[in-house]
């Protein structure tokens, strides 16, 4: 195990020892490109994250976010273009608002709002992508597993 991977694991050990699951929606133009760049650079990343490609973060609806949590994810995040640089002009702004809305919904039923987050980055900024993934992984690992009825 390289030191980077050890870093990943040590920082994210959960209280109950069970690994968390995180669903991530990446826009095709920026975040997914940054993810590919990170992969090509063989950066070590937490295995908890499952990426889903969307054309634009504007495609992600509150249903996608909540359904991911309801169907087994402990956290969900959306990564898109930098503000003002959406390839479709406004998709990331819509996504930001929807995430705020989803977080408010969670809060109203007593679930930690930080289980849903948004990150923005340029296609070239794989370090920012990696930082976002690790940050999300740490946050979710520090929370208990999400209980479902």
């Amino acid at each position: 195990m390289t030191s980077a991977a050890a870093e990943n694991t040590r920082a994210t050990e959960t209280e109950d020892g069970a690994e968390r699951k995180i669903v991530a929606f990446f826009c095709r133009e920026c975040a997914y490109a940054a993810a590919d760049a990170a992969g090509n650079a063989r950066v070590s990343l937490p295995t908890t994250i499952r990426s889903v490609l969307v054309p634009c973060t504007g495609r992600v609806s509150p249903l996608h976010l909540l359904k991911a949590l309801a169907d087994g994810a402990d956290g969900v995040y959306v990564a898109g273009c930098l503000e003002g640089q959406c390839h479709y002009r406004e998709g990331n702004l819509h996504a930001l608002d929807r995430i705020e809305f989803a977080r408010a919904l969670l809060e109203s039923v007593g679930v930690e709002p930080e289980r849903v987050q948004m990150f923005t980055m340029s296609a070239a900024d794989s370090p920012k992508f990696v930082a976002a993934a690790r940050k999300m992984h740490e946050t979710i690992s520090s929370l208990p597993q999400l209980e479902r009825r």
Partner: peptide
């Protein structure tokens, strides 16, 4: 989906962001 993960009944109305 919300009901599946809810810890309690919704606690009142929430503010809606502009673009929703």
């Amino acid at each position: 989906a919300l009901r599946t993960i809810a810890r309690h009944q919704p606690s009142g109305s929430i503010a809606v962001p502009d673009r929703v």
